[in-house]
Simulated assay, not measured.
Amino acid sequence: MVAGWFAGDEDDFRLLGTSCSACASVFFPREDARCRNPGCSGGHLVEVPLSRRGRVWSYTDSRYRPPSPYVTNPELPWEPYALIAVELEPERMVVLGQAAPGLTVADLAVGMEVEVVPGVLHEDEETTWTTWNWRPTGVRT
């Protein structure tokens, strides 16, 4: 888990970004040092929860094992997964993430409403690395 990138549980899971008090630009991943908007003179950055729902902007398959620092178990066979680019309209941004387990590109369509849910990136005997996934609204995986 990347500290400060998300919070909550299955019922109220949220990605966390930051918003500039001067220009209202929203950033994810979060920005804690300065406003990244080149047209802004700078303001105070405050943590804001991002929208839980958005619309599929684009999607694709990941059919190869990504290189480090992505964590995978090389002793297990590689299983492809779907990547989704989701437009969060209120924040005027697109956020990437994996589809929830069990979803494939055949289950997705541009414009489909999806919601952010907690996911597991990797786990071993000692640690579970949490991440976020996107799934179509109304679907339980």
Rank of each mutant, 00 (worst) to 15 (best):
D124P: 08
V120K: 07
D124T: 14
V117A: 11
H122R: 11
H122Q: 03
E126N: 13
V116T: 09
T128L: 06
V117G: 03
V117S: 03
T127K: 11
T137I: 15
M112I: 06
R140V: 14
T137N: 07
E123A: 15
E126Q: 10
N133M: 02
E126G: 07
G138A: 09
T127V: 15
W132L: 13
V116C: 02
T131N: 07
V116P: 00
E115V: 01
V120W: 04
T127G: 01
V120T: 15
D124Q: 12
V120I: 15
V120C: 10
E125N: 08
P118Q: 12
V139A: 10
E125K: 05
W134V: 03
E115K: 00
P136A: 12
H122T: 08
P136V: 12
M112A: 15
G138V: 14
T127H: 10
E113C: 09
G119S: 12
E123N: 14
G119Y: 06
G111Y: 09
W132N: 13
A109I: 10
V114A: 01
T137F: 02
V110N: 04
V117E: 05
W134A: 02
T131K: 01
W132T: 15
G111M: 11
W134H: 04
V116I: 06
V114N: 02
V120Q: 02
E125Y: 04
A109W: 07
E123R: 15
A109T: 14
W129K: 03
W134L: 02
W132K: 12
N133R: 03
G111P: 01
R135K: 14
P136S: 08
V114P: 00
N133G: 00
G119H: 01
E125M: 08
E113Y: 01
E123L: 08
E113I: 13
V120Y: 08
G138C: 10
V117N: 05
E115D: 01
P136I: 01
P118G: 10
V117D: 07
E113S: 11
G111I: 06
G119P: 01
G119L: 02
E115S: 00
P136H: 08
N133W: 00
V139T: 15
P118V: 14
G111F: 07
V114C: 03
E113M: 09
W132Q: 13
W129Y: 12
H122Y: 15
V120R: 05
E115P: 00
G119W: 04
N133T: 04
E123S: 13
T130M: 11
V117C: 08
E113Q: 09
R140P: 00
